[in-house]
Each structure stands twice: as structure tokens, then as C-alpha cells.
Amino acid sequence: MKYKFFLSVFLLCFAIKSNAQIVPGYQGKRTYIEYNLHFVPTLLGVNTKGSKFGVGERKSLSTWSFRHKINMNYVTKRNAEMGGSISLGNTGVLDKNSSFGTIRFTTIGFNYNRYFVRSTGALAPLGRYFKLETQYIQTANYFINHPRIDHHFAYLGAGIGSRKVFKDFFTLNLSFQSGLILPLGTSEQANTYKNDVRLRLQYHYLYEVNIGVGFLLF
């Protein structure tokens, strides 16, 4: 209850503060929703199709790992925006005994984008920006002959991108980001395969390219 109260007060203060500022957004629209596809070549690892190639066989470059993300951003200043996101992804992992497992991961994230107003003439949400993102990641790992194991991770990442608006309504986003995966939770059961999963996720999050489409809400 206490946390909810503080969260409400924080959001209220934030709304009052940002409303008092002169923020153009795009033609007055400051909120938009976007679907983003993050993809990365399966360097140094396998993807979910790894099972097809037999245990121990590595596939790289020719296959891709994907993450599907929905995010909603709110322009807070002429040169900044904040947003929240949820995403869903999957990839594969080989443990030290070369047993193959599928990783399905869901994330809840928070991002802050700062636009290069002075150098490129961008105005949030339009133009080039620098991005900071943090995520809470929950993975569900399905190893062969092993019950599902859940792991928890945190992600801290940064990137750059560019957003365009078409027909005064649709948005198109292109970005690239990279970051670090940090382990969360210490239970013994969770530690099984944890390093393998973390490493695989790290490869996935090391170099992500992102294409997104969305639309302006209000």
C-alpha cells in the first residue's frame, strides 16, 4: 500500500511537472505506441532451431534470434522522452554437457531517450536520439529431459536510434543498442544452468538491431 501511494504521488508530480513545460511532441501528440522487432545474428550460440541440428552442433550467422517488443513512450521535454515496454523473445542454449535447451524470456522495461536537438535539429519523438534502457528479464528454460527452470536477470543497455513520422500519424523507428545482463536471485535450483543462460542472453543483447512501427496516440 505504501509503495502504491508513493508511486501515485511520483506519477502525479511527474504529470504536473511535464504538463507545465512547453513540449511540442509531434503536433501536440506526446504519447505513441510502437511494435519493435529486435533481431540479432546467433553469434557464438544456437537459436531455438538448434534442436533441429542435433545436440552439440552450433549454428551461427545464418540464423537469427528475435525479440518482439511493445513499448509506449511519452515525450517529457523537447529533447527527451520516457517509456515502458514489455517484450517476448526466445533463443536456444547448449549447456556444458551439450544438452540443448530452449529459452523463452519475457521482459518489463523502462527506457529514457534523449534527442540530439542541438546537433541534428531533432525534436522528440522525431529524429536521432540516444537511448538508455533497463529491463527485468524472466526466463523459462526448457532443457531436454529436465523440468522447466526459471531465472531472473536485469538488463542495462544503451543505444542510438532515429525515428520518423509519416502521414502525421505513423512512426518508424530504427535503432541499435547493446547492454549487459546481470543475474538476479540466488536460489540453488535457479543456479542450475544460470551461467549458460546468462551467457546466451548476453550474446543476444550484445548487439541488437531494432526496427519498429507504431502510431501516435495523443
Binding site: I22, P24, Y26, Q27, G28, R78, V117, S119, T120, G121, A122, L123, L126, G127, R128, K164, V165, F166, D168
Partner: peptide, 26 residues
């Protein structure tokens, strides 16, 4: 005075006109 390192895409010009007028009006 904004130096925009992009093509003069309609949306960019729209955004800057809106921004100018908003600053004038607000």
C-alpha cells in the same frame, strides 16, 4: 535556428513549425 542533418521531410518541417508556434503561443 535549427540545423537539421536530414532531408527536409514534411514531418520534420511540421514539427518545427508547430514547435515555433507553440513557443509563441504558450
Amino acid at each position: 535556428m535549427e540545423f537539421i542533418k536530414q532531408k527536409d521531410h514534411s514531418s520534420i518541417i511540421n514539427a518545427h513549425i508547430y514547435d515555433t508556434f507553440l513557443q509563441i503561443k504558450k
